[in-house]
Write a protein that binds this DNA or RNA. Structure first.
Length: 857
RNA sequence: GGGGCUGUGGCGGAAUGGUAGACGCUGCAGACUUAAAAUCUGUUGUCCUUUGGACGUGGGGGUUCAAGUCCCCCCAGCCCCA
């Protein structure tokens, strides 16, 4: 017998991609006759190659897009490139290339790779954020923000790398040193641009409540990030000075336990009060050596500088020392705090170091006021307040309220709401970013570039001979003429944080060719909000929060956008892989570790290899798989299937060779069983017979249950379960031996449903088999199969019979069986009788269709 | 330290409070083959005195006729914020 021809994956997949491309299958326009669905995957950074995380992300969004499409939605599924940013500059410096050339080469490569995945993407809307046609519109938005008081420039403290001559983001400071130069980071004051996200702090917080299709985890993280707190602000006097010091505290219930006052070294009064004291300069220098992040400040050793001055408690009139302390942040609250060592760990550490008083004022439950002492750990929990006059006996919450009320009553303080959220610092002293569209004129000051002169384009001719910002030292670029007065002026050389681009790219997709505006309002009104956004949880705070801020800011500037950009959010897990080390202790690629017959691992040249932990794929640990190799070997469908079927999408996925091979076998099996079955199937569109055999009825029931089940699973992002159901249906169909016309009709019905159900996951194979089944339509234009409700219900149901909660038998009943009947049949079971021997029957619980439980004792 | 998530066979994982282990991977046995690959069939939680039974969802309590699922305490791992 002739062996059946193998499924030629490469040719077939390419053939169908060509069909979709020729038919422009995924290009969409606004269409009010259908409900719309905007399915969005987070746009990739063009690093050069796609990685498995991308494959997971886009496989998920593609399933949703194709499924929604089959369900009758007008689906927008776009793609673009987050193309500005530091890696391009690093690559340029290392390889002597240009950031722009490097980026566009990478885009071309990665686009080819994404195309090979067979994604249902409208490529006519492709956007690259480094394109001046893109950043032109965001420069306009920047100016709009400025005019609406949402963008401003102010002097602020930054991490400064003295070797690279540049500002570092907090993430670029490692152990107090620059991540590239290794030089100790300094704190410097520089003029920086900010977006006023804090203006919407309350609204961003409230909006979280409406995001019912977001993971709770992300909502909690955003909630905590915004960090709303209610506290008390009041002034302390300074002995023998006219000035007063405003402090803010979230724990006014503890103010009787205060023993010192601490000012941020950056506080305006700090210099004034202490700069003439010995050691002040050294102290400030020491403070400047720590980074600016909260974490850096928290981890740094607490150091203080005694000003020699005393502060007067406004209520108690007691006096306590005023320190400068490195752990007090100037931009949170008022930049000054009073220390309550007994109930704050930082304050306690500080107090122990400088030998300050520790006065407990909150008594932990089950402690005795007479004997309670603070050791090396502050008590920050809730308890009863004591040693505190009018607050005595209150708990934390009531104490806070009572303290605020008292200060307000005496008019010496007021309740204040504070946010942890800071304004968004967007200045970067880098070349490969969107130029801030402003000029500095000696006479006219800071003025925005006129709209008709946008975009302010990046010059191409730059060099990296020296550290620092190439824009700043470019021979001509920054020199310009003030359009107000005509005198010489200079351009702003800061560029924007790349989170700027990703905060609105989903709006540009809606109207990518628009030369006049970033997007037309009518496009936004039709497509927004994004119905389903999919991406990594690492963007849970910043990107998603900035995008939410942008909607509010754009709205204030007259753009028509919804408050919330993403109605639904799904955050996928990471892709992990086992790690391997050779006998010399070097990490090696999984493809270089070869498993021997005795299960041990070796390199090609026979070196012993040890297998290590299964962790997130990373280049440094070399535990990476190139998805292109997988697609080239097994095909896009198999790669997509494996990545969708192996784990629930929100959890981490362990990439295994066995798993991908299993998926590949299933692809081949589907092709083989359906092509083998073709000769036995009736022709397309043949009329449904009137009668079916019992087994055909059963098969049809399985088919229709799968139609409903797979849809439910996809709706709930249970892609692994959807695949399991598809396999079940496939197993049922494969094992079915038709005997009459009804049987073959049911078999065709089943196979056709099967193909349509797995189309979202394996679209190439689905198109191929749909065509082989005799259809001249294509699946991208075919709806989700309909189901017959009558076939979802079974005639009989098999349930368990428990005696005292333990299963003793199973019985099969008519599905409309009465409770009495079910009880009778259950009790008649020999095993149930046996279990009941010697016991008295108390009662029988019958849950129809579920269980019978016999209670006896 | 605070907040959150997770914990089920050898492995990935299923299970509206109702027959725990769907579906797959691996393993084992068999068929086909000169042989291998591929494919197909069966089997695969542990234990026992094996036509049956006991145990079993990180550990300990509780609620319930019934708990992987709900509540309390503890342990471990991961993530976020410190």
């Amino acid at each position: 017998m002739e062996t059946p021809e193998r499924y030629n994956i490469k040719e077939t997949e390419a053939k169908w991609r060509k069909v979709w491309e020729d038919k422009k299958s995924f290009e969409v326009t606004e269409d009010t006759s259908k409900p719309k669905s905007y399915v969005l995957a987070m746009l990739p950074y063009p690093s050069g190659r796609i990685h498995v995380g991308h494959v997971r992300n886009y496989s998920l969004s593609d399933v949703v897009a194709r499924y929604k499409r089959a369900k009758g939605f007008n689906v927008l599924n776009p793609m673009g490139w987050d193309a500005l940013g530091l890696p391009a500059e690093n690559a340029a410096m290392e390889r002597n290339t240009h950031p722009k050339d490097w980026t566009y080469e990478n885009i071309a490569q990665m686009k080819a790779q994404l195309l090979s995945m067979g994604l249902a993407i409208d490529w006519s809307r492709e956007v690259a954020t480094c394109d001046p046609d893109y950043y032109k519109h965001e420069q306009k938005m920047f100016i709009d923000f400025y005019k609406n008081n949402l963008a401003y420039r102010k002097e602020s403290i930054v991490n400064w790398d003295p070797v690279e001559d540049t500002v570092l983001a907090n993430e670029q400071v490692v152990d107090g040193k620059g991540w590239r130069s290794g030089a100790p980071v300094e704190r410097r004051k520089l003029y920086q641009w900010f977006f006023k996200i804090t203006e919407f702090a309350d609204d961003l917080l409230k909006g979280i409540e409406t995001l019912d299709r977001w993971p709770d985890k992300v909502r909690t993280m955003q909630h905590n990030w915004i960090g709303k707190s209610r506290g008390l602000e009041f002034s302390w006097g300074i002995k023998d000075h006219d000035e007063t010091i405003d402090v803010y505290t979230t724990r006014p219930d503890t103010f009787f336990g205060a023993s010192f006052l601490a000012l941020s070294p950056d506080h305006p009064l700090a210099k004034k009060l202490a700069s003439d004291k010995d050691g002040y300069d050294d102290f400030i220098k020491a403070c400047q050596a720590t980074g600016t992040s909260e974490e850096a400040i928290e981890k740094a050793e607490k150091i203080g500088f005694y000003t020699g001055l005393k502060a007067t408690h406004p209520l108690l009139k007691t006096e306590m020392p005023i320190y400068l302390a490195n752990f007090v942040l100037m931009d949170y609250g008022t930049g000054a705090v009073f220390g309550v060592p007994a109930h704050d760990q930082r304050d306690l550490d500080f107090a122990r170091k400088y030998d300050l008083e520790v006065i407990p004022v909150v008594l932990p439950p089950e402690e005795d006021a007479a004997t309670f002492k603070i050791g090396s750990e502050a008590f920050i929990g809730d308890g009863l307040i004591y040693n505190s006059d009018f607050l005595n006996g209150l708990n934390k919450e009531d104490g806070i309220k009572a303290a605020i009320a008292k200060f307000e009553e005496l008019k010496i303080g007021k309740g204040v709401t504070n946010f942890r959220l800071r304004d968004w610092g967007i200045s970067r002293q880098r070349y490969w970013g969107c130029p801030v569209p402003f000029i500095h004129c000696d006479d006219c000051g800071l003025i925005p570039v006129p709209e008709d002169q946008l975009p302010v384009e990046l010059p191409y001719d730059i060099n990296y001979d020296k550290p620092g910002n190439p824009l700043d030292r470019h021979p001509t670029w920054k020199h310009t003429i003030c359009h107000e007065c005509g005198k010489d002026a200079v351009r702003e050389t800061d560029t924007c944080d790349t989170f700027f681009e990703s905060s609105w790219y989903f709006l540009r997709y809606l109207d990518p060719q628009n030369k006049e505006r970033g997007f037309a309002n009518e496009k936004s009104n039709y497509w927004m909000p994004v119905d389903q956004y999919i991406g990594g949880v690492e963007h849970a705070v910043l990107h998603l929060l900035y995008s939410r801020f942008f909607m509010r800011a754009l709205k204030k500037c007259g753009y028509e956008v919804p408050d919330e950009p993403f109605a639904g959010l799904f955050t996928q897990g990471m892709v992990t892989h086992a790690t391997y080390k050779d006998s010399d202790g070097n990490w090696i690629f999984p493809t270089d570790a070869i498993q021997q017959e005795d299960k041990s691992w070796q390199t090609k040249d026979g070196k012993a290899v040890t297998q290590g932990a299964v962790i997130k794929m990373s280049k440094s640990k070399k535990n990476v798989i190139d998805p292109q190799d997988i697609i080239d070997t097994y095909g896009a469908d198999a790669a997509r299937l494996f990545i969708l079927s192996d784990s629930p999408p929100e959890r981490d996925l362990e990439w295994t060779e066995g798993g991908i091979e299993g998926a590949w076998r299933f692809v081949n099996k589907l092709h083989r069983t359906i092509t083998d079955a073709l000769p036995t199937l009736p022709t397309v569109g043949i009329v449904q017979p009137n009668n079916f055999s019992d087994k055909a009825k059963e098969l049809r029931s399985t088919t229709h249950k799968a139609i409903v089940g797979v849809a439910e699973d996809i709706d709930n992002f249970h892609m692994n379960k959807a695949v399991a159901r598809i396999r079940e249906l496939s197993n049922a169909l494969t094992g079915f031996k038709p005997a009459d016309d009804g049987d073959t009709w049911a078999l065709r019905e089943g196979y056709e449903a099967l193909v349509r159900l797995f189309n979202p996951m394996m679209p190439h194979l689905a198109e191929e088999l749909w065509s082989q089944l005799g259809h001249d339509t294509i699946l991208t234009e075919t709806s989700w199969p309909t189901h017959d409700k009558k076939l979802l219900k079974d005639d009989t149901v098999t349930i368990g019979v428990q005696v005292n909660g333990k299963v003793r038998a199973t019985i099969t009943l008519a599905s409309d069986c009465s409770k009495d009947e079910a009880e009778k049949i259950a009790l008649a079971e020999p095993n149930v009788q046996k279990a009941l021997e010697g016991l008295t029957l108390h009662k029988v619980i019958v849950v129809p269709g579920r269980i019978v439980n016999v209670v006896a004792g």
